[in-house]
Simulated scan of single mutants.
Amino acid sequence: MASKHKALVNNKTLLKSKAVQTWARRLHIYISMALLLVVLFFAITGITLNRPALFVKSQPDISQLTLSLPVELLSSDGGKYVPNESALVKHLTQYARLSGQPSALQVFTEVEDDELLEGEITMDYKGPGYNVAVFIDMASAEAVIEKTHYGAVAILNDLHKGRNSGEVWKWFIDITALLMVFFVLTGVCLLVPKKKTFNTSLKWTVFGSLISLLIFFVAVP
Rank of each mutant, 00 (worst) to 15 (best):
S3Y: 09
K147V: 11
G129M: 01
D124S: 14
L14A: 12
Q59E: 12
V192D: 00
Q64R: 11
P221I: 02
I211R: 07
K194L: 09
V168C: 05
I175G: 05
A53M: 08
L159Y: 09
V56E: 12
T186Y: 01
V107R: 03
E146T: 15
D137N: 15
L37R: 01
D114E: 15
L36E: 08
F182Y: 09
D137Q: 03
I155Y: 14
L117K: 14
Q106P: 04
A104I: 09
T205E: 07
N84H: 06
A104V: 14
S103R: 01
K4R: 10
N84L: 09
S75L: 05
A7N: 05
Q94C: 07
R25Q: 10
L65T: 13
L210K: 10
V134H: 06
Y30V: 04
N50V: 03
A219D: 12
E146C: 06
F198R: 05
K126E: 11
L156F: 13
V89I: 15
Y30F: 15
A139Q: 14
A139C: 13
L14E: 07
L40F: 13
A219G: 15
I211E: 08
S63I: 00
L74H: 02
F135P: 01
E167M: 10
T200N: 13
A133T: 09
N50P: 06
V82Q: 12
I31A: 12
E120P: 07
L14I: 11
L27P: 00
I145A: 03
E167G: 10
P128I: 00
L37V: 14
A43T: 12
A19G: 05
K4L: 14
L8A: 14
G129P: 01
D61I: 11
N10D: 11
V153P: 03
E120Y: 10
